[in-house]
Design a protein around this nucleic acid. Structure first.
Lengths: 144, 144
DNA sequence: TGTGGTGTATTAGTATAGTAATACACTAAT
DNA sequence: ATTAGTGTATTACTATACTAATACACCACA
């Protein structure tokens, strides 16, 4: 009750947890919230659902949610205000792009290195990447 | 480089282990041997260095080497002959390509999914991938 | 100042991964 | 058969990751 002021919207995100994917729960949550922030599903200043509420909805331990939130804070995507809640960070676009780059660098580098190690040419490798991008993107295109 | 006088060449590969990279030793070994097979540094039928010899050179436990070899056998890249040793598998080129595809699919898919989750466009993502490919490739180009 | 809402530090339990020590099984050649 | 070379099944130790239980600290507001 205390946290709810009219000007601030608390966003109930639609999060889906797959308990059999092998991907840690807190990482699934991180990925989905990050996506919503990066694609403007969550706006700067929006308040995130509380740790306990989200934990209740997803039937997991509150600490698991807290862990996801902590990592997101470390990345600079959210800000916590003690006793109040968690909010999407207000950052300059340049900062956001920097975060994106760091996250993407890590995984894309691995993929590129693997391609080279396997003796796959530049053109082939790009074709590969493009194929997967299109495949996933067409399955998950969101309509506005 | 054939290092011993025999009918079958036993190949002593130059492997480098980085104990501080965080990458498991057996995976480092797998990656490097795989690369040599895929790029023809190791030919079909070549015998690999024995578990004990390699373990001795790299100062690690023989079981760690055995583990790497086992995974490579699972991938279909090498064949073991009990009591004799380990050899680069004789497979058709199509089979080799299939193995490549499987290995590459896994990691490239992750990269593509991450790009999409971060709201990075197709063009941008490919530019990213290309950048990393070129960067790593120019550092590791091997002269023939 | 009490209450009901925030997040979290601490601690613990469980599972998994990585490495290693040991003893064993197989093969070729004497 | 013996020997000296292969690889490995079994077992165990350690480190780390993930999840959870508990108790605590903070904040706004009536």
């Amino acid at each position: 009750m205390a946290a709810q002021k009219r000007e601030i919207s608390i966003v109930i995100s639609i999060l889906e947890i797959d308990h059999h994917s092998g991907v840690p729960i807190y990482r699934q949550i991180m990925g989905q919230i990050r996506q919503q922030i990066m694609t403007d599903g969550l706006k700067q200043g929006d308040q995130l659902e509380s740790v306990r509420d989200l934990a209740g909805r997803l039937k997991v331990n509150p600490m698991t949610i807290s862990k996801a939130y902590s990592f997101l804070e470390n990345e600079g995507l959210v800000e916590r205000r003690r006793g109040i809640g968690l909010f999407v960070a207000r950052v300059r676009k340049g900062q956001l792009d920097k975060i994106k780059t760091e996250l993407l660098d890590e995984i894309v580098k691995k993929a590129a290195v693997t391609a080279i190690q396997l003796g796959v040419s530049h053109e082939e490798a790009i074709e590969f990447f493009s194929k997967h991008y299109k495949a996933y993107n067409s399955r998950n295109r969101r309509q506005k």
